[in-house]
Nucleic acid binder design. Sequence first.
DNA 1: TAACTATTTAGCTGATTGGTTAATTAGTTT
DNA 2: AAACTAATTAACCAATCAGCTAAATAGTTA
Lengths: 113, 113
Amino acid sequence: MEQMPVEALKDVAAYFQVLAEPTRLQVLNLLRKQEHNVGELAGLCGFTAANISRHLALMTQHGFVVRESRGTSVYYRIADESVYELCDLVCGNIARQFERSALSRAAFATAPK
Amino acid sequence: MEQMPVEALKDVAAYFQVLAEPTRLQVLNLLRKQEHNVGELAGLCGFTAANISRHLALMTQHGFVVRESRGTSVYYRIADESVYELCDLVCGNIARQFERSALSRAAFATAPK
DNA sequence: TAACTATTTAGCTGATTGGTTAATTAGTTT
DNA sequence: AAACTAATTAACCAATCAGCTAAATAGTTA
């Protein structure tokens, strides 16, 4: 991404945007174990099917999940396992970040008043 | 991130949210080569210093960059190089995604009417 | 101190978006 | 065809946010 036109940065940002939403992450997390249909995901997440359906449409459009219609239900599953690699990387970064801020809090706590 | 409480997913989402903005990605990209002060970054990005300053505050808060006040200027540099690893991963995913959609467009184009 | 430069913060505005309910579409079953 | 179930789409609302200008803060220099 060294010499990248601003236009391309918009695509990268849009990609990150898909992952920047707790409900969508929750859905991805659920799909990690196995495929699910919309109703199941809605129940597990505690939101309406309409809402989850919209999230799934977005994630499909960006190639995170794939859609398969079976009977009256529609099943979704992960399209690209590398998402989890990404999430694990981020979790590691957050953990480090958390540790850093915990350390500086500790420094404040032990500092002489 | 297998068995992750919903609360933690909010943190992960917030982390991705920081990267889900073209201007912030542009700033990170500029800082890849060397540190810059706010005015420089504003000029290079074509936005006001006020705007860039707010983006930098957010990125500092999330540990992406570090702030160093020198003279009347404030210089920022990357705090954690692993951000670029993340971005490169995403770029690869987008490229693959692009290729897939190019292929399916080609299939449509050659399909008999 | 006063004047000057750089950064940050406050306040505003328009655009985007996650949630909802209601209406529509698609597929199954009687 | 009619009734039923599941998913999607439309329309709405509240909240968030990126941009701006203007005001406030911090540091340097005359």
